[in-house]
């Protein structure tokens, strides 16, 4: 048997369904950043993102245990569809109780992946990310959703259009307008995105 880190998603799912828990640990490790980042940037609330992230994987575990996972689909788009549905469900329920977004004081950097940077590099990096968050926050939800699903979820435009039940040209169009809007904001705010 191949080393667990080298196994593809389909084999990991099979392994988990045979009772090997190391397989789910590998899947979590493989996709935690993509799934968590997607949820976080959609809901913009850390505590809620943590809850929805856990709920997503609990649904995944239940589906895998009950053999409801179709091998025809890829694991990540399937997992992200579950995450996205949970976010949308939350927004529907939240209509009566508006979502409490993280305050300006909240530091998203507490949850950034640790990379080896010196203090000066970290400061520049943090500043760039803060600008990106500000840019994302100013996009209309439909555009922000496409940017997040393409960047953080890593889905192709075709996969995004399937997930959202929209035409691929609609997905590309929304992304295009998002890019235009972000570029405009970058110019207006004189944000330097160049390395």
């Amino acid at each position: 048997m191949a080393h667990i880190h080298l196994m593809d998603d389909k084999d990991l799912v099979n392994l988990y369904q045979k009772g090997d828990q190391r397989a789910i640990s590998e899947l979590v490790s493989r996709y935690k950043q993509r799934i968590y980042s997607t949820i976080y940037f959609l809901v913009r609330n850390r505590e809620l993102a943590e809850d929805l992230f856990q709920d997503t994987f609990i649904k995944i575990l239940t589906s895998l245990k009950n053999k409801h996972y179709s091998e025809q689909g890829k694991f990540l788009p399937w997992a992200l569809r579950i995450a996205h549905n949970l976010v949308i469900d939350h927004f529907r329920k939240d209509k009566l109780m508006p979502l409490q977004h993280d305050s300006e004081e909240f530091s998203v950097f507490d949850v950034l992946p640790q990379k080896s940077r010196n203090a000066a590099e970290q400061m520049i990096y943090d500043e760039k990310i803060a600008h990106v968050r500000a840019l994302l926050d100013q996009l209309p939800f439909e555009q922000r959703e496409i940017v997040i699903l393409r960047h953080y979820a890593g889905l192709s435009f075709k996969e995004i259009s399937n997930m959202l039940n929209i035409n691929i040209n609609t997905a590309l169009g929304r992304m295009h307008y998002a890019i235009l809007k972000m570029r405009e904001m970058v110019q207006k705010q004189d944000i330097n995105l160049r390395e």
Binding site: Y16, Q21, I24, S25, V28, K32, Q33, R34, Y36, S37, Y40, A49, E50, F53, Q54, F57, I58, L61, V108, V111, L112, P113, Y125, K128, I129, H131, V132, R133, L136, V147, H151, Y152, I179, M182, R183, V186, L193, E195
Partner: peptide, 24 residues
């Protein structure tokens, strides 16, 4: 724009990971 967005990945807490694995 895409490069800088790609650099902004976040991590869930260790507690969330442990909760999930406890239910696996």
């Amino acid at each position: 724009l895409t490069s800088i967005l790609n650099d902004g990945f976040l991590e869930p807490s260790e507690k969330s990971i442990l909760n999930i694995l406890a239910k696996a």
